[in-house]
Design a protein around this nucleic acid. Structure first.
Lengths: 109, 109
DNA sequence: AGGATATCTCAGCCTGGCGTGAGATGTTGA
DNA sequence: TCAACATCTCACGCCAGGCTGAGATATCCT
């Protein structure tokens, strides 16, 4: 490929800096195997921490730390199990996930 | 919300570990303001390094380093300008960007 | 009540990755 | 040919962020 449009080389300075802060923050949340694994597992329905820790081969406090990040970002919610309240079941906030997807779209679209 | 389906608490162990390696790598590429800014700017057409460095408020060697990462991932291509071959114009490989978007979709979808 | 289970929080360590500076390569114009 | 320009590459120093271990909280079972 050869760039053809600017026949005379005049690098356009003063181009607007693109606003990618939201997309970068969103990507940062996905750029970890445990957080990405959590979001992937929760796409199929709620899971408790011990289930996810076992499936991901990670310690529970590590998973808990990452869940705190996702919770702070509003991507997941927790609620105790009806019959056995020891277990915290997490579920995705699909609306927040959609917003995150949209912010990535501003870069990739 | 209260989890209702498993009335008796029986955490399902032995769940399959989700394969998120590609999505994590993709997110890692986006999780930097310079790389995300580059991809965003190139969505509107080719740009040379000095244009992007100026718009992003970054040094050229930093931009060049990030372009090398994106090039290694196959997301961008470079070609010299026709009239003034000093300038390297970069363009997105839209097919590769689509693959990256798809890999993110395996986590978010 | 007391022990066991599930989860959370925090401090401390450690590694990956970013920015910078210096030098190398290729291109243009005088 | 030589200076200026555009870009690349690499080594080095630094810091954000992940893992770990220890301790705290909440819940269940006997």
């Amino acid at each position: 490929m050869r760039a053809t449009l600017p026949v005379v080389a005049e690098p356009r300075l003063g181009l607007a800096a693109p606003d990618v802060a939201d997309a970068v923050a969103a990507a940062g949340l996905l750029a970890d195997p445990i957080r990405a694994g959590i979001l992937r597992m929760l796409a199929d329905g709620p899971h408790c921490v011990c289930e996810m820790a076992a499936a991901l081969g990670a310690r529970d406090n590590a998973v808990s730390n990452h869940l705190a990040r996702l919770r702070a970002a509003g991507l997941v919610r927790a609620s105790r199990h009806d019959a056995n309240a020891r277990f915290l079941y997490y579920e995705r906030d699909e609306r927040a996930v959609a917003r995150l997807t949209a912010s990535l779209g501003t870069v990739l679209g």
